[in-house]
Design a binder for these strands. Sequence first.
DNA 1: CGCTTGCCTATAATCGATTATTGCTGCACA
DNA 2: TGTGCAGCAATAATCGATTATAGGCAAGCG
Lengths: 231, 231
Amino acid sequence: MLFQEEKETPRKSTRASLVASSLLKSILRGELAPGSKLNIDYLREVYQVSLSPMREAISRLVSTGLVEFEDQRGYRVAPVSLQLLAEVTRLRSDLESLALRYAIERADLEWESSVLGALHRLNRTERDVSSPEAMEVWESAHWSFHKTLIEGCGMEMLVEFCQNLQNQSDRYRRIFLKKPAGSADIQDEHNAIANAAVDRNADLASKLLRAHIERTGNDLARQISGELPED
Amino acid sequence: MLFQEEKETPRKSTRASLVASSLLKSILRGELAPGSKLNIDYLREVYQVSLSPMREAISRLVSTGLVEFEDQRGYRVAPVSLQLLAEVTRLRSDLESLALRYAIERADLEWESSVLGALHRLNRTERDVSSPEAMEVWESAHWSFHKTLIEGCGMEMLVEFCQNLQNQSDRYRRIFLKKPAGSADIQDEHNAIANAAVDRNADLASKLLRAHIERTGNDLARQISGELPED
DNA sequence: CGCTTGCCTATAATCGATTATTGCTGCACA
DNA sequence: TGTGCAGCAATAATCGATTATAGGCAAGCG
């Protein structure tokens, strides 16, 4: 063949996959209330699929921690609480900074470049808190930056766990944070983290990342504490 | 029907659950080879269940990391490699010691008692390397001890992740370690960890736990390195 | 001969019907 | 008036049949 068609393996999605990702979004957006039962017949109707793919889709989300399951009782959306949010924030702080340390340890040009690339994209994405659509784009770039940082550790299991924690965190933000509380120095924080990372200053980078995550988490918790019972 | 057939197993579990736990054991024992495809029709035959619970059972194991899934390609047993083992060992070391630190931080009498209880049971369980059955019992007590230590952290997500890592580790041991390599001072190690824990000496306890996990993991890796390609 | 292309089989995915279990409701009874 | 149990929905779980897809094989074409 003259020029090798670069097929990205656009593997055709199954219904179960499509429903699963759609359902994930619904849960993250809080459209399916925390703690509520996932009635399969109802969801079947909503997504217009049969029982098998519906069950399969739901069951896949169990591994993300956003759905819980009990024999003969079915599935329900994971509950929320200030305590759980604190747990998520602490683990994000511990694990993302851990992953970043490993990433810096085995850093190569490739990784450094992706980090600076992701940073640039994030900085060039406007954070217009008045536009939900724009915020979606910004949040996506934001997580991309974080993910790029930690993916350098080369440990899939760790990255996946961080992804789950991020999803949890994201859910709290979407559900409870009506007014995006964006301090102006967010951008400075990201720049500082990225610089420390490519400078191979693990202690500093790790410290800054922790601070960044904990600040975000605490801001969120403070906003929520009025709306949610202490436990 | 006149004679309502009494179920021989008055269980609450569903077929899917039973099959899932049975399948998990099979994978841990290496009866289902790492990397091999999980042929649903075949497994259906083996476990004598229909397609739906079979799929459900398999799909639940995906969250443990012992089974991988791809759309239209089905399920397969997670592969093994020295590199992956190293990853598992490192994460176990990092995360169990992290959990232990948190546990010590919020330690109460209840936790201290369970730790010493689990330690006692472990010490009183004979480690007879010539008897597979005895070793099963010992391994169970061993993991119980570890789990008791880390459960004190009160973070379910972290404990569950540690459990997954432990399962992974366990699989390598069962598959590759034909001759249990038990140094005589294993018991001393456990005692030292437990003592440091109830003494609330987080630094020492954490250091000892790391050493314990890394020693085990490295012993295993050394034994394997002859059998497995470096990757 | 080598490459493409179109069956063909194995297997993954989906479906709708059926069975089992749970949890509620209302009636009998103390 | 409270308790317990039978019967009755609601819904979770399972089944076997059907449809869709992938990957191998062989015929057709260059």
